[in-house]
């Protein structure tokens, strides 16, 4: 809260041309929310990649009793999740072209 107030005060000062623009820039970086810091973002990327690879490779040790045919393939749950979701978004996007109207469509 203190940081946010500080930030706001500085922004106001900048707006009134009482300080130099690059000072607010520096301060802004200093008080950035931890989620927005480049370091956090890099760590998130690394963590995400490690978890994904570990999960994908888990299939080497994992032998899910194939229930039907298709789910016996290597990394079935991984590729099925990835591909169906990507296909779903693409299909939904195409559907959007067909189904989207202005937000006042039903009003008249």
């Amino acid at each position: 809260m203190w940081a946010a107030n500080c930030h706001r005060a500085l922004r106001r000062l900048y707006f009134l041309r009482l300080t130099l623009p690059n000072i607010t820039h520096v301060i802004e970086n200093e008080i950035k929310h931890w989620l927005l810091r480049p370091r956090t973002i890099r760590l998130l990327w690394i963590g995400f990649t490690v978890v994904l690879s570990a999960l994908a490779l888990a299939d080497v040790f994992l032998h899910p009793h194939a229930l039907f045919d298709v789910d016996g393939t290597f990394g079935f749950y991984s590729w099925y999740g990835l591909l169906t979701c990507a296909a779903m978004v693409l299909f939904a996007k195409a559907l959007g072209v067909l189904l989207k109207r202005s937000d006042t469509y039903y009003d008249d």
Binding site: F48, V51, L52, L55, A56, A58, D59, L62, H63, P64, H65, G75, F76, Y77, S78, W79, Y80, G81, L82, L83, C85, A86, V89
Partner: peptide, 20 residues
């Protein structure tokens, strides 16, 4: 097996979101 396969499904679904 069930826990891991579920995590595979969800994380790779998240990967699709991130990528797109």
């Amino acid at each position: 097996t069930h826990v891991l396969t579920q995590l595979q499904l969800l994380f790779f679904s998240a990967l699709a979101f991130t990528w797109l």
